[in-house]
């Protein structure tokens, strides 16, 4: 695989919040790549450095050391963001705007013209389960409905890379099911998807690869199919069988040692 196929390239990332005695290392040393068309799950316990890494990928915060590129461009550059759709952990949108207006805003910022927006918005609202809700002010939307608007704004420009921070945060089971369908469709269309999640079944069922982090460091980077096959093979010897068991075996000893 050539370096040009790397959609995301994170090298020796180090992120520190605060200065001097108050400095806190959120990320100590994380490196990984994500290739074109891959779906990668990014998992770890709270405080492992997932959100900080994603925020650096989006250019919201700046690393103390290391380098992050998206499509070969520096993370956060306009060129990188042009091809990226992003859904934050907590999705809140302008409460004084209607769902249609919010999508017009985000689509317009992504470079779509009015005709294209008009063509895309209605089907998109239907796709995320908000058919007929385009003219309702967002202040009247539930958290789950706002998250659906969030998914719509992330994919409105049909970006090549999708980054989701806490994939199904705030969604009810129906919402999760719908989101899974959207993701599977995007995956089938060759989009690159990178998401953090606490739901290991999402990683198991959606991802090609899983990157596990703990205490600011990468502790595993596995192909999900290979990993699951290995866990199945180990099952016969009385060893861990699920991804959750594997995850706990990686995280727990370090937690106990700390």
């Amino acid at each position: 695989m050539s370096i040009l196929d790397h959609v995301i390239d994170v090298k020796s990332l180090k992120i520190t919040y605060g200065r001097g005695a108050r400095a806190t290392e959120a990320v100590r040393d994380i490196s990984f790549t994500v290739s074109r068309g891959e779906t990668v799950g990014f998992i770890g316990p709270n405080g492992a450095g997932k959100s900080s890494t994603i925020k650096t990928m989006m250019g919201f915060i700046f690393p103390e050391a290391g380098r992050v590129t998206i499509f070969g461009q520096p993370a956060g550059s306009v060129e990188a963001r042009q091809r990226t759709g992003y859904l934050p952990e907590v999705s809140l949108y302008y409460p004084f705007m209607k769902a249609r207006e919010v999508l017009e805003l985000y689509g317009g910022l992504a470079g779509l013209d009015r005709a294209e927006l008009k063509r895309r918005i209605q089907p998109l609202l239907e796709r995320v389960g908000l058919a007929g809700k385009g003219e309702i002010l967002l202040k009247n939307f539930s958290k789950g409905m706002q998250q659906r608007v969030g998914i719509a704004q992330a994919i409105i420009s049909d970006p090549d890379l999708l980054v989701f921070d806490e994939l199904s945060s705030g969604l009810d089971p129906v919402g999760r099911h719908d989101l899974r369908d959207v993701l599977l469709d995007l995956k089938a269309r060759g989009k690159t998807i990178f998401f953090s999640s606490h739901e290991l079944y999402e990683v198991e069922s959606l991802c090609d690869r899983v990157v596990i982090v703990n205490r600011g460091c990468k502790v595993a980077d596995e192909n999900v199919s290979d990993l699951m096959a290995r866990l199945q093979a180990e099952a016969g010897q009385g060893r861990p069988r699920s991804l959750e068991d594997y995850f706990m075996d990686l995280i727990r000893p370090r937690e106990l040692a700390a």
């Binding site: 989006m58 992003y86 859904l87 934050p88 809140l92 985000y106 992504a110 704004q153």
Partner: peptide, 14 residues
């Protein structure tokens, strides 16, 4: 406060 800055600045906006 609303955290809208994250979704806005995720778009190709300088």
């Amino acid at each position: 406060e609303r955290r809208t800055i994250y979704t806005i600045m995720a778009k190709p906006l300088a």
